[in-house]
Write a protein that binds this DNA or RNA. Sequence first.
DNA 1: GCCTAATACTACGAAATCGTATTAATAATC
DNA 2: GATTATTAATACGATTTCGTAGTATTAGGC
Lengths: 160, 160
Amino acid sequence: MEQLFELFFRNGLRPLSLLDGAAELESKMNRSELAALLTIRYRGRLTMSELATELGAPLSTVTSLAQRLVRKGWIERTRSDADQRVYWVRLTDEGKAIGDRAYATMSVWFERVQAALTPKELEQFLALALKVGKALQQDKGAKEKPAAGKEKLSRIRIDD
Amino acid sequence: MEQLFELFFRNGLRPLSLLDGAAELESKMNRSELAALLTIRYRGRLTMSELATELGAPLSTVTSLAQRLVRKGWIERTRSDADQRVYWVRLTDEGKAIGDRAYATMSVWFERVQAALTPKELEQFLALALKVGKALQQDKGAKEKPAAGKEKLSRIRIDD
DNA sequence: GCCTAATACTACGAAATCGTATTAATAATC
DNA sequence: GATTATTAATACGATTTCGTAGTATTAGGC
């Protein structure tokens, strides 16, 4: 439990810090640029505010971050027709190329995880992790409706 | 694989706002100060380099971070007798008090996780999460020279 | 419609972070 | 034991982040 605690803090406070080996990527971009790229790649397109909340950063920070990425030619921003206040952010072709490379680099980590677990374990882990993730994302103020994701998971054996 | 990826994005990139709701504490420190405080609290005392690797930050960053914390009166640094190059970092009484408060605030997160899972599920989740953590940390084919200047990340010890 | 409130974002200066160069102390080699 | 290499940390300038104030646009009363 202690160890999990450590893991949790480390990753909770400084995401991506557990994962080294992104050296090749990190020479071209820093952590937040990588996170932004991956997020935009994953979401397709989003607004500045959405990007900010996804990244857990203040909007003003994301403004400059986005400016940098535009300068690098990796993303483009277009003003929304429906609401002139909002800007849509999406990857350019070059951004996509870089994003794909980043993804490829990272998928090594996912493969490692898959290799380490049996299919059953993986399934179980995913289910539980989703539950935990959901629990963590809830607004603290919100008075917790227990229902939704609470169906019970069957127990499986975990090999060491 | 898809699911793992999704999981990673939904929860892996965004730092948690751990002090969320404790406005009183939040106004006193930023994320890295919190992380440092908790790390030192957890470890008792450590050297500057150790702190840097624990935090996943470069040493030069930790130098200024530590200066700030000294100024705030939360930590103290003493030069090691055994090796004059190293400084031991530990919490002052005031630092301990604040650290305790921060920890208490944060334990809400654990309660949430516990509330979301049955005891059996929790047990399974812990076991699996540790396995995954271990898998992520294992060195891939160490083909790279440490690329001068890049700090190595500390491994979290995970027992079976 | 008009006025006020809320929202989406940018501007800007202050603070934090990072990479690289440098200093000082210890370890290793001969 | 002198010389070189390595390690632990700081110095410093450049870049990034952040909080706050400001601007423009849309939403909500009435």
